[in-house]
Write a protein that binds this DNA or RNA. Structure first.
Length: 126
DNA sequence: CTTTTGACAGCGT
DNA sequence: CACGCTGCCAAAA
């Protein structure tokens, strides 16, 4: 069963719109907790969880061997801007809108323990 | 408590 | 552009 941190990572990953990506470092920063390596650890456990893992990449726009190959197919399919086998972050990096930030904050707050006092009806899924 | 290990990041050579 | 080093964070040994 997923740890709370992992869950938060998956929710953020799931919030990334098709055609865009975020780096491990971005996720960590947005969560306001842990570091890129923690995000990576979480992603390594994401298999079989409906998580768009190919939208979470390294800071240089690549992924480790074995994943990069499969990811390229998705990148092509979603028309994510890439160049010589690597994503062009300058163009593909997701820049959340207000609604996006609201969601990200909610996840971060939830993780921080700042309980969802507003836990009402935010059933937010894909 | 120290060491090792990762789907990492940044910088210098 | 490719390595190699150092810094980083948390978990496990």
């Amino acid at each position: 069963m997923p740890q709370p941190y992992d869950d938060a990572v998956y929710r953020l990953a799931g919030a990334i719109p098709p055609g865009c990506v975020l780096t491990y470092g971005d996720i960590a920063e947005l969560l306001g907790s842990g570091g890129p390596r923690q995000v990576g650890a979480a992603m390594s456990q994401s298999t079989g969880r409906n998580v768009p893992w190919w939208r979470v990449v390294r800071a240089d726009g690549t992924l480790p061997d074995g994943l990069i190959e499969r990811a390229k197919e998705h990148w092509t399919e979603e028309e994510i801007p890439m160049h010589r086998g690597r994503i062009r972050l300058a163009a593909a990096r997701w820049q959340p809108d207000d609604a996006g930030f609201a969601f990200l904050d909610a996840v971060a707050a939830d993780l921080a323990g700042t309980a969802p006092a507003t836990s009402n009806c935010q059933g937010h899924m894909l």
